[in-house]
Simulated assay, not measured.
Amino acid sequence: MKKVFPSKVDIALPILFVVTSIPTIIISVREKDLILFAIMLSVFTLIMYLLYDTYYVITHGNLKVHSGFIVNKNISIGSITLIKKTDSILSAPASSLTDRIEVCYGNSKSIVISPKDRQHFVDELLKQNVEIKVEL
């Protein structure tokens, strides 16, 4: 049993990155600054890659949080104690700024994520650990 949950992507994030990157890319082309162009294009590509390669996998007893090559975290579902809604905008393996949840596990550890189908995601975790407290 393996269930994959993509991260919700707020449309505002890609638009923000496009709007902020394009002027610098245009200036670098106009000025024939290939180094600046290469840097901006690389940063833009990396950010878009991370936005769309963020997902969460629930297997038997394990939650895997994946975000590109940056985050690849495995969490025992049995160690999860609380899932709650959060408004934190801190950096996290979540492609949404508005629909984030915090998964608390172990001894005071937590991770902020944003599964596209939040309720189905939580239901799947509860099937494996009925003791998880949910505050959504």
Results as ranks from 00 to 15, higher is better:
L51A: 02
L13Y: 12
K32H: 14
C104W: 07
Y49G: 04
S42F: 12
V71A: 01
H60T: 13
D123F: 04
L50W: 05
F69G: 01
P14T: 02
L126N: 04
E124Y: 08
H60A: 13
I22T: 12
K73M: 11
G61K: 05
V43A: 13
L90A: 14
D33K: 08
T24V: 15
S28W: 07
I15C: 02
S114F: 08
L125I: 06
P93W: 05
I25K: 07
G78C: 00
D53E: 13
D87W: 05
L34T: 09
K8F: 04
S28D: 05
E31A: 15
T54S: 10
F17G: 01
V18Q: 00
V130A: 13
I77V: 14
G78Q: 08
T81R: 11
L51Y: 02
K73H: 06
P93G: 05
Y105L: 05
Q119H: 09
K85P: 00
G68I: 04
K133L: 13
H120P: 00
E135K: 14
I101E: 03
V57Y: 03
V112S: 05
R30Y: 15
K8W: 02
V9T: 03
L34G: 12
I11S: 13
K116S: 07
E131T: 05
L82I: 07
S108H: 12
A94G: 09
A94P: 10
F5Q: 06
V130D: 09
D10N: 13
L82R: 13
S91H: 02
V122H: 10
H66V: 15
S95Q: 05
I75T: 00
L34E: 10
V130Y: 07
T86K: 06
I39E: 10
F5I: 09
T59M: 10
S7L: 06
F5N: 08
